[in-house]
Amino acid sequence: MSDPIIKIQNMNKWFGDFQVLKNINLEVEANKKIVVCGPSGSGKSTLIRCINRLEEHQEGDIIVDGNELSEKTKDIEKIRAEVGMVFQQFNLFPHLSILDNCTLAPIWVKKMPKKEAQELALDQLKKVQIDDQANKFPGQLSGGQQQRCAIARALCMQPKIMLFDEPTSALDPEMIKEVLDAMVSLAKGGMTMIVVTHEMGFAKEVADEVIFMDEGMIIEKADTKEFFANPKSDRTKLFLSQIL
């Protein structure tokens, strides 16, 4: 057993009076792939947004790659640079070309020389098969292409962990596959991934563990096979019966 790369202990979070996350405990080891599922409003997205501190938690500890996230954390940007994130709405920068979207952060955050950054970006774009679109603007691409570009953009920072926040929920059914393919090949390359998704096929194929959340709590956490073959809690069974 190696040391976990993400460690969350007794974490609680409120939005005003409303408690979104209740007593979360989670450990993720390097190179593991975790799928988080659950109904809408169960706090899945908030949980992974806490991991790179796009949301602040109020109680408990979150330790990412040996750094504790709290108000005192000075170099939050450094930690974020290690944690890539892909969003439901792609969130590409519409005023920059696909290539510039990918090179912006490596050049200005990691101080990479421009040429090197461009080579890296083209390499990553090639892996998600949109290197031929490099000079177009996000508005000219389909949703699936945009999301693949967003994955490439995150990978250009060479992160240790990748977070996916419902990456396929805003896509047409036809485009879901191309994005999932890109994610599967990323998973096979050994990346540590936490994926919030409703794509159970993807979970079965790549996940090491599946977490089921409801009402801000982790209801069930189990190995993938175990999770699908014989879920323990009734809530999980109900959810699975509806979604499968």
């Binding site: 796009l54 640079a81 944690v83 969003f87 709405q89 969130n91 200005w108 995150a154």
Partner: peptide, 13 residues
């Protein structure tokens, strides 16, 4: 949109 801020932050800016 807030997503633009999120995306920039998540890239370590």
């Amino acid at each position: 949109p807030r997503g633009q801020y999120d995306a920039a932050k998540s890239l370590g800016m």
